[in-house]
Amino acid sequence: MSNNDTQRTVTVRIQRFNPDVDKKPHMQDYQVKMWPGMTILDALHEIKTHQDGSVTYRRSCRHGICGSCAMHINGRNTLACKTPIINEVKKNNTVTIGPLPYLPVIKDMVVDRTSFWEQYLRVKPWLIPPDDIPEREFRMSQEEVDALHDAEACIMCGACYSSCAVIGLNKKYLGPHALLKAFLRVLDPRDTAPGERLEIVSQADGVARCHTIFNCIDACPKGLNPTQAIETLRKLAQKRQKYEEAKAERQKHLNEPIPS
């Protein structure tokens, strides 16, 4: 990539919507001079600071950690702070940015995430540890850690949730983010409520509603796999009692050394 390439001016096309004045969303173009390493979030800052202060979006950490800058960039949900603009510039020298789909727009790229958080809370995303907490740390074997498939790395950005076609039709569906969290807790050897969690995800708006469309996998900026988590929950839900018993047995040995 030549230096000229990274320093040219590109068109950033933003979906604008202010419910106080607009009846429906419209696109607005801004010209931004790229610099090497510029991300989509940097381009938005550039616009907001120097061209149009009314452009509205969420952001916080700027390091792909907080999940607040998830938006729809060139037809894909991803994090604005993690996406180099040079990778997104199309042949017509344009990058198109909009809010996360399927969610009510508050203003420009800011969406109302109420349903996202409501579904999340339904799976009781917190850890429910055993009563007798050991003096030393809980111990997990390498296999137990591997089985989580890095699900703990989820930053709750909502990219998966708002790329899911089932969510587009039905906001009562738990959604990939909540099911991924349920998976994490169900497989966590320290958690004492796997049965209750499996019961919740087995309801009509739970795992059975996933159509394995795989959009959530494509969208996840952390490379996580909610579809695989949903599939695992489906299997465990079939043998709930056995699984609960096995887990209770495992919890008796949580503070013992892991046999090698």
Binding site: V166, L169, N170, K171, K172, A204, D205, A208, R209, H211
Partner: peptide, 14 residues
């Protein structure tokens, strides 16, 4: 039934 109840309006009458 699964496809029809994917729609929230139908889901309420499942």
């Amino acid at each position: 039934y699964q496809v029809i109840t994917d729609f929230e309006s139908a889901f309420n009458y499942r």
